[in-house]
Design a protein around this nucleic acid. Structure first.
Length: 1045
RNA sequence: GGGUCAGUAGCUCAGUUGGUUAGAGCGCGUGCCUUAUAAGCACGAGGUGGGAGGUUCAAUUCCUCCCUGACCCA
């Protein structure tokens, strides 16, 4: 006996039962440990931070990871799944600041760095339990007990090892760079952080004039455009594009300006062009500064040249403030310009700035503009809106600010990164070639230092040499630290060993030449931590050398598109340099999850989807399927709960009902797959071989797609097969046969076929929807153990028979056409009809049709199929052009040729069929040029589509009408049974009240009716006091009374 | 401002090495079928394939420009 799903069965309710089963069975560990270590598939888990709550976007990435890992497991691979936690960096610090009410850097110092870092450590796993519950509930199999944690000393040591590799190669250096800088954090932000904080800002854009000093252009001014008036006091130069054309103009108001010729549209008044220059001719021209409160030590205030100057907006002349822009800084370097910093790193103007001193840089824009206007230096002012980066937690505009920072010089091996990227299989591919590829092309050195507290300390110590220059050494291991340190034991005398600040700051080293060295104060970008996970998770190279070498690069990783410049990059940048190989071979990138209207989910809007709610309501199986199946994974997804319910109703309910059907009838009729005598597939009925062929075609596509990491395509194939092929055709067509099989062999053939389909579907969906797959598998094969421990590697090519699939497609096509004719002629399917005519064009087609004849006739309730052979006189054949063939052949004449072919008459067509070619109006046509079809059958109502034409005999004779009547009657009785919840095996008596004609029809068919409706007694005795059911059948009045026996 | 992707029915998505009636599901209307089905089937309504050009005998598909949206970057 097979176990059926009980009435209370629900998908959400299944989770606990299955989790319990896996826990007792230790299924996950078995699925890894019982596999051959030699045949491994390496997966890297991108570490989340557990100090924030998990959201729906985490569910999609983890579903993708889980699907591939489970799939590879079933393919026989050993897939180790070590979890990881990202624990350093600003997100953690921010949480702590919020908790403790610390508002600035100063507050943190007051609170004390030791205490602060202790708080950070405590805060890391604030939501760990939520993450664990999510992991469980969504059935994400990962080893949480053995997770790597980025703040552990061993992990940090591995990161140090990597940093030292960079340092020793001269690729980790201290530099002065323009970085986005938050005035409140007083720290540069990583590009990742910047990306989180773009806000639309209304800013002034001003055109200002710079007076030229040269005698020759005494009254002439440079017209310059800027969107950051606050940088003007720090101006030291102007810059023009060397190859562009500039003009000197004289306006109606007698103003003389120099600007780019292609930007003349910004001039307010009429003007005439006085003189033209190439950009290069302007180089070196001096001008008077706008503001004078900053002192300059070097030559400044002249025109420079720069390729970066564009002519898309502004005036083609750019003002240069080297401290506040990257291009500006580079020009400053090139021309040895002084660096003025009228605004300090805290975002406030410096003391020397007079009335601006101590005020925020952005807030001074209006006053600066006023002052420019007062001095006659303002040409015009506009407001414009642009998206400007803000600090994502302090919500203040960032400054681009020149600051000391440590860099990894990734640009030196950029080409290698680009080369290696080509070896990576990106899914979807355009992310790799486009988004990531372009990012690599424009690679910038990686600013890895942070002036913060909670992070991997930069393992660099320094002393000052005789010239006062800093000399650096980098430490690459704890052992090295101990060896070089003079005070290691002292520092860690009373506290446990901890590589973090501030303890590490107290460690003094001795340099190679005997000098005492102090540590630099910075920590590193936490993206360097996570990018080091391939080796740091196993404390390589200090331990697990062999393991690492075997498991690098990863076979597979998956994360959201937001990781392109995050983790995908940090893995790639670190891996390429250290190991000369990409860090991963395949990856799947999932798109963002938006709300159902396509808006970003945000707490303030209140449109955030809670994954726990979704799983509680619909079950993780459905959620997982929906997330990866409903739209391509790489596209952003508008999350819509209603659509998820559709997935449940259509796919899961169909599968479950098919399963229930199998169990119900197996148990009723006494079938057990394992005990039954196997019928070879070739011995089975045509329809069985057909569904087995379909099944194997589906498996083939499933494997192909998953091997290409195409999850969505893979599961859509299974989805369609389950609903269309298996449930709506195979099971429906065979219902009678399952109830009343012809013989033992037929029974086994039918049931074994259905069983095998179910089993294979269950295996195919196991990676995607692991709970329901497990439940059904264990019920179907109670002695086999978990589906997730089963092997699933191949399909049976020999059982794929195209001919079978084609002939069934033809049958379905014909059935479809007949139904259409019936509807148009108001003939219910219940009404039997005499005959169906189908013309065929070849012997092959005829034979194909004969093989599916019975299926067609039964499906459409017609008595006979008459096949009209090609030469039958009553078929009217027509020809239509095959453009694929005639296009290249006739070129420009195609339109004319089309007309000719459409006008082919019977003689033309028969000549073409006989001779293989026909000549007409000077053109020669062959079989390939023409598609023949049956347009009409004389004297019949026809229906046709591209492939087939049918004609249906719609005339009714007495026999047919009677039979139709009987079927109607049976239908009424069955409906009654169903509506009154009769069991299938309940026997009934029927009493009918109707006219004589009907009575005679019914009594002529009593035996048939009895059999169909499970009736033992049927008569027209009139029972008094019973409630008869009124109905009418084909407009004839009829009453009946039914009694359960 | 630059990059990537997308824009196909009311919604979610297929498809197209360029071939002349562009498909499915959901939703809507009508009818039908059913003793596994909160299912299914048929018919119908619903599409200027984002817009404009170009290449071609032929463009939803290739090219150019533009518009809109999402994301990434400045």
């Amino acid at each position: 006996m097979y176990k059926n799903l009980d009435d209370k069965f629900s998908l959400p309710g299944l989770a606990d039962e299955m989790l319990d089963f896996w826990a007792k069975d230790d299924t996950f560990n078995k699925s890894v440990n019982e596999k051959d270590p030699k045949k491994h598939f390496t997966f890297y888990e991108g570490p989340p931070t557990a100090n924030g709550l998990p959201g729906i976007h985490h569910v999609i990435a983890r579903t993708v990871k889980d699907i591939i890992c489970r799939y590879k497991t079933m393919q026989g691979y050993r897939v180790n799944r070590k979890a990881g936690w990202d624990t350093h960096g600003l997100p953690v610090e921010v949480e702590v600041e919020k908790q403790l009410g610390l508002k600035s850097r100063h507050d943190i110092y007051e609170f004390g760095a030791i205490n602060f870092n202790e708080e950070c450590k405590k805060s890391i796993f604030k939501y760990l339990s939520q993450w664990e519950i999510l992991t469980q509930k969504m059935a994400y199999w990962i080893n949480l007990d053995d997770a790597y944690v980025t703040f552990h000393n061993e992990y940090i040591e591995s990161v140090w090892w990597a940093l030292k590799k960079f340092f020793d190669a001269g690729l980790m250096v201290k530099g002065f760079k323009i970085l986005p800088f938050c005035p409140i954090c007083e720290s540069p932000l990583s590009s990742h952080e910047v990306a989180q904080g773009y806000v639309d800002l209304k800013d002034p854009s001003v055109y200002v004039t710079f007076k030229i000093k040269n005698e020759e252009y005494k009254d002439t001014e440079f017209l310059v455009w800027t969107t950051t008036p606050w940088t003007l006091p720090s101006n030291v130069a102007l810059c023009v594009n060397p190859t562009s054309d500039y003009v000197l103009i004289n306006t109606k108001k007698d103003e003389k300006f120099i600007l780019s010729e292609s930007r003349l549209s910004v001039v307010k008044d009429e003007y005439e062009i006085v003189k033209r220059f190439k950009g290069t001719e302007l180089e070196g021209m001096e001008y008077e500064p706008l503001f004078s409160f900053m002192e300059v030590e070097k030559k400044a205030y002249y025109v420079t040249l720069g390729d970066f100057v564009t002519l898309d907006d502004g005036t083609g002349i750019v003002h240069i403030a080297p401290a506040y822009g990257e291009d500006d800084y580079n020009i400053g370097q090139k021309y040895d310009l002084p660096v003025l910093q009228a605004v300090y790193r805290d975002g406030l103007f410096v003391k020397a700035a007079g009335k601006y001193a101590g005020r925020n840089f952005k807030e001074c824009d209006p006053d600066l503009i006023l002052e420019l206007k007062a001095n006659g230096r303002l040409y015009k002012k506009e407001m414009f809106t642009h998206s400007y980066p803000h600090c994502w937690r302090h919500k203040v505009p960032l400054m681009y600010y020149a600051t000391d920072s440590w860099f990894v010089k990734t640009t030196t091996y950029k080409d290698k990164m680009i080369e290696m990227n080509k070896q990576i299989n990106w899914n979807p591919p355009e992310f790799g070639s486009g988004r990531f590829g372009n990012w690599l092309e424009e690679n910038k050195d990686w600013a890895i230092s942070r002036n913060r507290f909670w992070g991997t300390p930069l393992p660099v110590w320094y002393y000052l040499d005789d010239d006062g220059k800093e000399v650096y050494e980098c430490v690459g291991s704890i052992e090295e630290l101990k060896k070089k340190s003079t005070n290691f034991d002292e520092v860690y005398k009373d506290i446990p060993f901890d590589l973090h600040k501030p303890y590490i700051d107290n460690i003094k080293l001795v340099s190679e030449n005997g000098k005492e060295m102090k540590r630099v104060t910075e920590v590193i970008d936490c993206w360097f931590d996570s990018g080091s996970m391939p080796f740091a998770q196993y404390h390589y190279p200090f331990e697990n050398k062999e393991w690492f070498e075997e498991n690098y690069p990863a076979d597979f990783i998956a994360e959201g598109v937001d990781q392109t410049r995050g983790w995908f990059y940090s893995l790639h940048a670190i891996g390429t340099f250290l190991f000369d190989k990409p860090a991963y071979k395949n990856l799947i990138v999932n798109g963002l999850i938006l709300d159902k209207l396509g808006k970003k989910m945000s707490k303030s809007v209140g449109n955030v989807v809670n994954p726990f709610d979704m799983m509680d309501k619909h079950g993780a199986d459905v959620l997982r399927w929906y997330l990866v199946g409903n739209s391509p994974i790489g596209k952003s997804k508008n999350f819509n709960e209603d659509e998820m319910v559709d997935v449940k109703n259509k796919f899961f309910d169909t599968l479950i009902n098919t399963y229930k059907f199998f169990v119900l009838y197996s148990n009723m009729i006494g079938f057990d797959y394992t005990a039954s005598e196997k019928v070879d597939v070739n011995e089975r009925q045509e329809i069985d071989r057909w569904i087995i062929s379909k099944l194997n075609s589906v498996k083939k596509k499933y494997f192909e797609n998953l091997e290409g990491y195409e999850i969505t395509k893979a599961i859509r194939v299974v989805h369609d097969f389950t609903i269309d092929e298996l449930s709506n055709w195979f099971v429906r067509r065979n219902r009678k046969r399952f109830r009343y099989p012809e013989n033992e062999a037929d029974k086994n053939s039918a049931y074994q076929t259905l069983f095998e389909c179910l089993r294979e579907i269950v295996k195919m969906i196991a990676p995607v929807s692991p709970f329901i797959a497990e439940k059904l598998y264990c019920n179907l094969l109670p002695n086999e153990g978990s589906v997730h421990l089963s092997e699933f590697t191949n399909f049976d090519e020999a059982n794929i028979v195209n001919e079978l699939e084609e002939q069934m497609a033809m049958a379905q096509e014909i059935v479809y056409l007949v139904r259409a004719v019936r509807v148009k002629n108001n003939l219910k399917v219940r009404q039997p009809l005499r005959q169906l005519l189908v013309p065929v064009l070849s012997e092959e087609e005829k034979n194909r049709l004969l093989r599916v004849k019975d299926i067609i006739l039964e499906e459409i309730n017609v008595k006979e199929l008459k096949i009209l052979e090609g030469d039958s006189d009553i078929i009217v054949k027509k020809a239509k052009p095959n453009f694929k063939s005639i296009g290249p052949k006739f070129g420009k004449d195609v339109k004319q040729v089309q007309k000719i072919i459409l006008s082919f008459d019977k003689a033309d067509i028969s000549e073409l069929q006989k001779a293989g070619k026909v000549e007409k109006e000077g053109f020669t046509f062959t079989n390939d040029d023409v598609e023949l079809f049956t347009e009409n059958i004389e004297g019949w109502i026809v229906e046709s589509n591209n492939a087939v034409t049918i004609a249906l005999d719609t005339k009714l004779d007495k026999e047919l009408a009677d039979e139709g009547f009987v079927r109607e009657f049976i239908n009424r009785v069955q409906n009654y049974r169903k509506n009154n919840d009769f069991e299938v095996n309940d026997k009934i008596s029927i009493f009918v009240k109707t006219n004589d004609e009907i009575n005679s029809i019914l009594s002529n068919n009593t035996e048939f009716i009895k059999k169909e409706v499970g009736c033992e007694k049927m008569g027209n005795k009139i029972l008094e006091g019973k409630e008869y059911i009124n109905t009418d059948i084909n407009d004839v009045y009829c009453e009946f009374y039914i009694e359960k026996i």
